[in-house]
Design a protein around this nucleic acid. Structure first.
Length: 906
DNA sequence: ATACATACC
DNA sequence: TACTGGTATGTAT
């Protein structure tokens, strides 16, 4: 209601020029905004920005309404609280540290200009027509700035020269600068390639005692033969770097660098920082700006104060700090962006003085963390210690491309992303439990879908298993319309600590071969399952299990709310099994449409299932025939169309048909019979089997030696063939052996399979030994198949109505055998997964043998290296853009990846 | 926990 | 023609 005082511009705060940054003072905003507007208007991007703008406006309206309801009483009370907290904060104010924020001036642009004299006189920017990373000061006068698309910048400044990013170069320069930083603070905190925080308190302490010689620097000729004059020794204030101000190169009072000249710097903070900047310029021919203050928040603001090529200091005195804050626009404070700025503006708050005046009100309108932050700002407080880079919390990769509507292509891209992400994760030895899929459609609407697994993952297959399911749900949700995407991303978070990475786990083999002696270690499994069973609602009890299986979970959740469509693979499989039990036999056939008559008990679930079946059946029927004709063994596995072309399924299929216990080959297509056979075998021979453990090492070796090579090729195959089809149908054909189904090609299937794909070698070994459940798929099928009798037999504890899971040793609260069996199945499945993960080298993937050692070294230094290779990839080797996908954006990301190395040197 | 928004470089 | 990519954190359910 009260936010229209700004007139039309109100609706464009996010589109209009953001002249908050240095170099943009005194521009003809209106004219620039008009051009920006005209250029953007009507675009999808623009429309979306408008929408977001309106959301912000609504948020503001809400806030204003809330404000209107505030009573004087409340305000008074709030003020009391604010005052109290203010006192506490004031009491703990720390002014003893000397914090410096150093920021290279127009970094990328400066580097490019330095290396290309031609550019010095021109307005230029680094980036592409699609997006700019930064611009030189000359270009800024036209309103051209970072984060602005190049084509708009061209409208603002037709003569603008756009230079592609060259990250390798920036990284190299950054490394040079950091060497200098480390001399003033070995623990400096890099925020990106071009900026960092330093705590020079200690340095200054020592510096006091330094002789002049240690503070003397010579003006030597730059290594960059390019510009002859570098005004090294001038007083930073008025001198403009020749690089930055190409248009007025003569303006720099370059003291014709008599090579012999030297400058002696003092011992004060200002002198030390001036010296540092001087050295940076000497070394790189680039200028930097700096801020010196008692805390990071202030230092950051200060570094912007006299940019470019300048510095500013706020002495450690409360009064001075408060005076400085008074007129400071809140927007200048890091963390206060355009939305916050706008909300505060709606409350009449523009500068920090007003902010402090309105704290009581703000405490009533904003969350605790928000208003506490505001209070800190208003008091000029900020962090006084530069903590070392903390542990990374997530890792992701995303890509923008031309409109993509083909589901198959989308799955393919998704896999590629997972592949890249997995590589990055493994590089850092990370494993996380939450997988998030990010989608941006052609309307620029962004969606994120996350799922948290029971265990941490880091391989392409594991991640993809979850991601593809998340993607499937989205695709299905708009089907038959296609998802029209412009971006897709995958993120993994919820990292587990190093210790948790190797949880003790008991192998399913152990369980099978022995009696249940070691059946006590599975609390995790037990816990989840038990919890799952708490809710009696049929669908939900599967949830946790699904989680364990990753793939299923997502769809399952959806099905809960939507009541239909996709259920997790396992869910469907289990339902099938149930049906089978009930009906005794179900034809693998498709034709039968159960959809309509599915009004019975299993109701919802079943219905879904049938629906799914229908879809798949059509396809599966086809594939079946194909498969059969080609490979007879396909029998029960025959999935759907998935089989497509060159899959290695045949091999796997063959094995599937082989009883994992007695090693007998069974060509019978009747799954029930096969399952029964296995059950019988288990009853009779499970106990006899040799310990699985022995195999473990071998398996591992094999896995290791059989690297990723497969990933790319298999990926190609996979992506091209089935994706889409796979997803949908699985269930149908593979009635009682869901797991088998999973196996398939490992594509979009559950994690199981994915693994398998790479495990082939392992398999054979195992089968030789006749392990009951050698491989994931086998185990899986086994598990699924085994029935209650088998279970009860094995667990001596289970008596009467109270059943105890032989796997997790947890008593089960249900008497329902079907439920109990499911629980056991899930426990087993989880074990299989865990075991697989255990034997499957998660981190030190064979394709990266050197990583371990590198990591080790870094680790010795007590720091976690976070160097992101992603940027590297962008910089040097052009990503192998997956087939058809054309990447529009020029990944000129402003990367911070160097953040890590930072303190490591020195 | 999930989804979406904001922010920074 | 064309409006990024990576990470953290806050807000809202």
């Amino acid at each position: 209601m009260a936010s229209h005082h700004q007139g039309g511009a109100d609706l464009l705060s996010r589109i209009a020029l953001n002249d908050n940054k240095a170099g943009m003072e005194g521009l003809d905003r209106d004219k620039i905004n008009k051009i920006i507007l005209e250029t953007s208007k009507g675009s999808k991007f623009y429309e979306n920005e408008l929408k977001k703008e309106q959301q912000v406006n609504q948020r503001i309206e809400k806030m204003m309404e809330q404000k209107a309801r505030i009573t004087k009483e409340q305000l008074k009370q709030a003020q009391a609280e604010v005052d109290k907290l203010t006192c506490e904060l004031e009491r703990s104010r720390e002014l003893g540290r000397v914090i410096v924020h150093v920021d290279m001036d127009a970094f990328y642009a400066a580097v490019e200009m330095r290396d290309c004299p031609e550019l010095k006189d021109k307005p230029m920017a680094v980036g592409s027509m699609s997006m700019l990373s930064t611009s030189n000061y000359h270009a800024r006068r036209f309103g051209v700035r970072a984060a602005m698309p190049g084509f708009i910048a061209k409208k603002l400044c037709p003569n603008l020269v756009i230079v592609p990013t060259n990250f390798d170069k920036y990284r190299a320069v950054s490394a040079q600068v950091r060497e200098i930083f480390s001399e003033y603070d070995p623990h400096f905190m890099p925020m990106s390639l071009d900026e960092a925080y330093l705590d020079i308190t200690e340095h200054l302490e020592q510096r006091k005692h330094w002789p002049e010689t240690m503070r003397t620097y010579h003006i030597c000729d730059a290594k960059t033969g390019n510009d002859a004059d570098r005004s090294a020794a001038e007083s930073e204030r008025d001198e403009l770097s020749p690089v930055l101000f190409e248009d007025s190169p003569s303006s720099s009072p370059s003291l014709s660098g008599a090579d012999g000249k030297a400058e002696v710097f003092g011992t004060s903070a200002e002198e030390a920082v001036r010296e540092m900047r001087f050295r940076i310029e000497q070394k790189t021919s680039l200028t930097a700006s700096a801020g010196i203050a008692p805390n990071m928040m202030l230092a950051k603001v200060c570094s912007d104060k006299n940019k470019p090529n300048g510095q500013y200091r706020i002495p450690p005195e409360r009064q001075v700090v408060m005076e400085f804050m008074k007129d400071l626009p809140v927007r200048k404070v890091s963390g206060v962006g355009k939305v916050t700025e706008k909300m505060l503006a709606a409350l009449g708050i523009v500068n920090c003085d007003q902010l402090s005046q309105q704290m009581a009100l703000l405490s009533l309108l904003f969350s605790g963390t928000s208003w506490h932050n505001f209070l800190h700002i208003s008091l000029g407080l900020g962090s006084t210690c530069i903590e070392r880079d903390s542990e990374r919390k997530s890792m992701s990769t995303e890509r923008t491309f031309g409109e993509m509507s083909d589901a198959e292509e989308q799955y393919s891209l998704c896999r590629d992303l997972c592949h890249d992400l997995a590589q990055d994760l493994q590089r850092e030895g990370l494993k996380g439990k939450t997988v998030t899929l990010k989608l941006k459609n052609v309307k620029f609407e962004v969606k994120t879908r996350a799922f948290t697994l029971q265990y941490a993952v880091c391989t392409e297959e594991e991640i993809f298993a979850a991601a593809k399911d998340l993607l499937k749900v989205e695709i299905d949700s708009v089907s038959p319309q296609p998802l029209k995407l412009r971006l897709m991303g995958v993120r993994v978070s919820g990292f587990i600590s190093a210790e948790d990475k190797k949880p003790l786990q008991r192998s399913i083999m152990g369980f099978l071969q022995k009696d249940g002696s070691d059946s006590g270690s599975f609390t995790q499994c037990a816990g989840s399952v038990l919890k799952a069973q708490e809710d009696s609602d049929g669908a939900s009890f599967l949830k946790p299990q699904s989680t364990e299986m990753k793939v299923p979970s997502v769809s399952e959740q959806k099905s809960k709310s939507k009541g239909t469509q996709q259920q997790s693979f396992f869910q469907r499989a289990q339902l099938k099994r149930l049906q089978q039990q009930e009906q005794e036999q179900m034809s693998v056939m498709a034709g039968t449409d159960t959809t309509n008559n599915s009004a019975d008990a299993a109701a919802a679930s079943k219905t879904d299932l049938s629906t799914t079946n229908n879809l798949s059946d059509t396809t599966s029927a086809k594939s079946l025939s194909n498969t059969n004709s080609g490979t007879d063994t396909t029998s029960y596995v025959n999935k759907p169309a998935v089989l497509k072309p060159s899959f290695k399924i045949s091999t796997q299929v063959l094995q599937f048909l082989t009883c994992p216990v007695c090693n007998t080959e069974m060509k019978d297509v009747n799954l029930t019979a096969f399952n029964n056979h296995i059950d019988e075998c288990l009853k009779g021979s499970a106990v006899d089997n040799e310990p699985t453990h022995l195999d473990a090492p071998k398996e591992q070796e094999e896995l290791n030696s059989k690297p990723p090579a497969s990933s790319s090729e298999s990926r190609a195959l996979k992506s091209s063939s089935h994706d889409p089809s796979c997803n949908e149908e699985k269930p149908s054909t593979s009635i009682s052996v869901p797991l088998v189904e999973t196996d398939e090609d490992g594509d979009f299937k559950t994690p199981f399979f994915s693994h398998r794909t790479k495990i082939n070698g392992k398999r054979s070994v195992i089968s030789k030994k006749k392990m009951p459940v050698c491989e994931s798929s086998c185990k899986a099928s086994l598990t699924t198949t085994h029935n209650l009798e088998a279970v009860t037999e094995m667990s001596s504890d289970s008596k009467g109505s109270s059943l105890t899971c032989p796997v997790c040793s947890q008593p089960q609260s249900t008497d329902d055998l079907a439920l109990f069996n499911r629980h056991v199945d899930m426990c087993l499945n989880q074990e299989v997964l865990l075991e697989f993960r255990e034997s499957h080298p998660p981190v030190g993937h064979s394709d990266e043998p050197a990583l371990k050692s590198v990591r080790g070294q870094l680790g010795d230094q007590g720091r976690v290296s976070k160097v992101r290779e992603k940027s590297k990839r962008q910089g040097s080797s052009p990503l192998p853009p997956s087939k058809k996908i054309k990447v529009l954006s020029t990944k000129h990301t402003i990367d911070k990846f160097f953040k890590s190395n930072a303190g490591q040197k020195v």
